[in-house]
Design a protein around this nucleic acid. Structure first.
Lengths: 236, 236
DNA sequence: CTGTTTCTAAACCATATGGTCTAGATTGCC
DNA sequence: GGCAATCTAGACCATATGGTTTAGAAACAG
């Protein structure tokens, strides 16, 4: 284990939960069952941000379900501060969308309140040691969601009747340059051909892609995975 | 456990590895230490695809590092077939990029060859039961990579000196229509203003975005999170 | 009230772009 | 050899696009 006694430093923690009873419950739990140091607590996200700036803790336990400013936004803000603070999301729901969003904005862990206290301690320990911790059950949910959102995109992109497949090599080169916002003249120079030849290619491209102008051609190309067919989009 | 004896069905498995010794090693391991049914094996991805179509297994163990057609491409193809086959990636490397790409294209698990045999069996079991399984260590790596790629995009997108921020509301509306490949005339009709007004707006947009034509403006907009600033790109 | 910003719109002009047709050279295939 | 596809390139024309300037109306801030 890399966290041998010689390296062990009591991780300093701030807990945020709008429910005061939960808050003190978690605080006590941590103080009794671990050797972490709860330096502060907060019942609102805005207060929490100030406390974080002041105390610079290693770990923040953040309840996601809070009125006013919600936990996700708070996590995003904390990440933006870039203080090296590692945040663990704490919530009652294993909603895949919540998990996905939390991990996306930079949460280093995600724990359900219903989980055993030992698991909470373990999670804090892992995250304090630089790892990212997501319990297997939540991890599984995350990936289902993750893959689903990709699948929809990929299908749209790698279709057989992608009109881009009908382009000749030269036409692809021309389109490639068009997607960089280069004029016909520029394309002609880059490819060492005359401008009229470029125009011929472009017209053929338009017909093959069934569009009327360069902007539409570029949009078609980008939306159908032309430039680097290995790129896709994901909704946050 | 949901997989009580009454529901247990011997999962049928196909193993793919270009190294024949590894292949038979894994096969034996599974046959001895579990009650899964290895219905076929293959030493190349193309053969594997045929076998999968023929046997319709529940699980495919796919080596990622293969010559000719690599495992990732194979997994993508299998997913495209949409036969309900669940694929587990098997490799020697815990390269985060590999893990990310494998999970993105739809692998339901990712196991290192160096891992204990019990873990392989466990993974197969989990995946056969409809879950997605990624060992904690790999999961951690995945998320680091995942978050890093998001962080870069988010920074690029939500930058203060994003020239898009200088656009007025009307200019944004015009640009929005431009990014849909609509002509000036079309924009004018949609916004109920004259074509010359559109031109004025467009010219202002060009100056603010420091570009010379609509294609470049559209590209700038797309690359800087104009359309739906909550969308980002990730490389597979 | 005055200056600023934004949205509107026109005139004028130059050039880039798009549509269509024709055609030679090259390559590869049957 | 001959056909098909591809890349090349020109002519010709219509229109869309881009650059610049000017200017009125409305909203808003100081």
């Amino acid at each position: 284990m890399r966290r041998g006694l010689e390296f062990k430093k009591k991780a300093r923690i701030i807990i945020v939960d709008d429910n005061y009873e939960h808050l003190s419950g978690i605080k006590e739990l941590i103080e009794i069952e671990s050797d972490f140091d709860v330096v502060a607590t907060a019942t609102s996200a805005s207060v929490a941000i100030s406390l974080i700036k002041k105390y610079r803790p290693e770990i923040v336990l953040m309840d996601i379900n809070m009125p006013e400013k919600d936990g996700l936004t708070a996590i995003a803000e904390i990440e933006k501060l870039d203080l090296g603070v590692r945040t663990i999301a704490l919530t009652g729901y294993d909603d895949p969308d919540l998990i996905f969003r939390a991990m996306k904005i930079g949460a280093k862990g995600y724990i359900l309140k219903t989980m055993a206290s030992a698991q909470l301690i373990y999670a804090i320990d892992e995250v304090a040691n630089g790892k990212i911790y997501l319990p297997a059950a939540l991890s599984s949910r995350f990936f289902e969601y993750f893959q689903k959102s990709f699948k929809e995109e990929v299908q749209a992109v790698s279709d057989e009747d992608n009109l881009l497949n009908y382009l000749t090599q030269r036409e692809e080169e021309v389109l490639d340059l068009l997607t960089q916002g280069i004029t016909y003249k520029g394309v002609a120079q880059k490819l060492f051909i005359s401008e009229t030849t470029v125009k011929t290619h472009v017209n053929n491209i338009f017909q093959k892609l069934q569009v009327n102008d360069r902007t539409q051609a570029v949009l078609y190309a980008l939306n159908n995975g032309f430039l680097n067919r290995r790129k896709v989009k994901i909704a946050i």
